[in-house]
Design a protein around this nucleic acid. Structure first.
Lengths: 192, 192
DNA sequence: CGATTCTTTGAAAACAGTCAATCTGTGTGG
DNA sequence: CCACACAGATTGACTGTTTTCAAAGAATCG
């Protein structure tokens, strides 16, 4: 299971075999069944999670009690509640598997040790964080300026591999519109 | 003008006098008149900007041509188009002053030199970035799960110092609702 | 096949946006 | 000091979009 992660790292970084072995040594491989939790609200997020196979999502419950999907994560995506992971506070979000999945986990202590020992890994992770931030900022822009239809089209364009893989009502949740609205938006769009 | 920034750093970090002097040496102090641009769409964002006095905003134009406010920045807040700053690509956003302001600027090269030389500064900036990311993620949650009224109340609660300082129609833009809707929402709320 | 999950559709209600007019306060120039 | 312009906020009437509720039609899975 580590092979996928190793391939990912080799394609994105210039790590040596020794460094990769060091990473492997502290990695934790896990299988997740569909619908299985990786993190539950109230627990502390103790791991950063790389998805080597399958599909995860993170979501948070609203006051009304329904699920609002924050992110999806497929192969080669990272997933964690960074807020809880960094602060040690209980997580406000849940993470679960939408498909049978395989993940690589790292405890915070181990991962901190790795980035402090391996400069190229630190560099890579910093690039990753700043791109994650940019993505987040761009998503805010879509929310304050796009209509439901524009948000859907943008999503399909940006994440074709996710959109044809997760149920539509979850995309609706991710976009912040009702499933009925998204269904209508999409069918009107198909007619054009 | 550097004093405000120095005070900020002293309160948040354990930097030595030598380190602070090193930072000061590469800092650029600028005054901005109200309505003056710090960054215009299409230009490359060459500086990270600390606001020591006044109020800035960043915004991006929609296809329709109107302004969508991404962030406000008052005293002790940082402001930049990180995407352009890191990539060297032209900025998609604008930054301008809502009040006569004073800012401290750092070029990317200088700031990189600083964080690589001063471990405590690096640590502090990393904490800053991760909190900025958390804030960003939480804002996405408000956009997918809150109504206009809830978004307004949340904003007032989270940023009391900004809400009583910038025009209402800009808060509306920030929240992604029309100024008329926000005006109504707020007056209904006042009646309770 | 039966159960569950997912998607679609219709009709009504709630919500938010647009357009236009008015009101308010502020500041500038004569 | 006044008149005027200007930016900001509010209100009303109307339109359009989105949600909600309810039902029914696909698709999937054990």
């Amino acid at each position: 299971m580590f092979e996928v992660f190793e391939k990912y790292l080799r394609s994105k970084t210039q790590l040596t075999d020794e460094e990769l072995e060091m990473i492997r040594a502290v990695s934790i491989s896990r299988k997740l069944r569909k619908r299985q939790y990786l993190l539950q609200e109230g627990d502390v997020c103790r791991h950063d999670c790389f998805t080597s196979k399958g599909c995860l999502r993170s979501y948070r419950l609203g006051d009304d009690g329904d699920e609002h999907i924050l992110r999806f994560g497929v192969e080669n995506w990272w997933m964690a509640d960074k807020e809880s992971y960094n602060s040690g506070e209980p997580a406000k979000i849940n993470i679960d598997a939408l498909e049978d999945s395989e993940v690589i986990l790292f405890t915070r202590d181990n991962f901190t040790m790795l980035v402090e020992t391996i400069p190229n890994l630190r560099l890579f992770m910093e690039q990753l964080y700043s791109r994650a931030f940019d993505v987040s900022q761009n998503r805010i822009f879509t929310h304050i300026s796009y209509s439901a239809e524009e948000k859907y089209n943008d999503f399909v364009k940006s994440y074709p591999n996710i959109f044809n893989r997760v149920p539509l009502h979850m995309i609706a949740s991710y976009l912040g519109v009702s499933r009925e609205t998204l269904s209508r938006v999409r069918n009107q769009y198909a007619q054009k």
